Simulated scan of single mutants.
Amino acid sequence: MYEKILDIAEQLFMTQGYQATSTRQITEILGVTQPTIYYHFKKKEDIYYAVMLRLSKDIEQNLTKFVEDPTQQLESKLISMVEFLREKHPFNFFVMMHDVQHSLPKEMTTKLYQLFSSSYKGPFIRLLKENREKLQASVDIEFAVSQLFILMASYLDNTNPKDNISEMIYLYLHGIYKE
């Protein structure tokens, strides 16, 4: 039952956000009572954290595989990583960040940010650090990855299947300025 709760909660949290998802919705979809949910989780935020923890582990493992793939170069690895996130974890990044910042207690916000930093941003940071010689000397890698996530946000919700991730990554790496 624990995994079933997480499966349904993940679908709801990723499509509706934390605030718009209720434990009542989860129980209705599962066809169980509220006490069944509360047997496994004390409160909704615990369900959210468990969903994010499970998802983060999977995301980190898969993103790391792209980083370590010796057959791809930097640009193709970035494209593959963004496409993977889009397929595996379609979400509205802005809704998720708003929920985390405004709907959860500070301690939970901190835990979720640490989880996101290590499992989502971590592989991208590692990839850029491993390719440091290809980057401008003045580039702050952590800032560059943060900017990449801002850029990616509009691609991750899967609302426009015609979005060209390859072009976005090309512009991210090469810019539009002709020197």
Score class of each variant (00 low, 15 high):
Y39W: 09
G31S: 12
P90V: 11
R126F: 10
N160L: 10
S117A: 15
Y113P: 04
V67G: 00
I5L: 13
P105Q: 03
V67L: 03
G17C: 09
L85G: 02
T36M: 07
Y2N: 15
M96H: 04
Q61G: 06
Q34W: 07
Q19A: 11
P161T: 12
E167M: 12
I26M: 05
L156M: 03
Y113W: 13
K106R: 11
E167Q: 15
L173W: 14
T109Q: 14
L78A: 04
T159S: 15
T21C: 10
I26G: 09
I150P: 06
V100K: 13
L12M: 11
Q73L: 10
Q34C: 02
D140A: 15
S119V: 01
L112P: 07
Q72M: 15
K134D: 10
N131R: 04
P105R: 02
K162C: 09
Q136W: 06
E28W: 05
E130K: 12
D99Q: 11
D58K: 15
E75M: 09
S118Q: 15
Y113F: 14
K65W: 08
L171N: 12
T15V: 04
E68G: 02
T27K: 14
I59V: 12
E75Q: 14
L127Y: 03
M81L: 06
A20F: 08
D157K: 00
T15Q: 10
A50I: 09
I79Q: 04
F93K: 09
T71Q: 13
S76R: 11
K178Q: 12
H40Y: 13
L63H: 01
Y38Q: 07
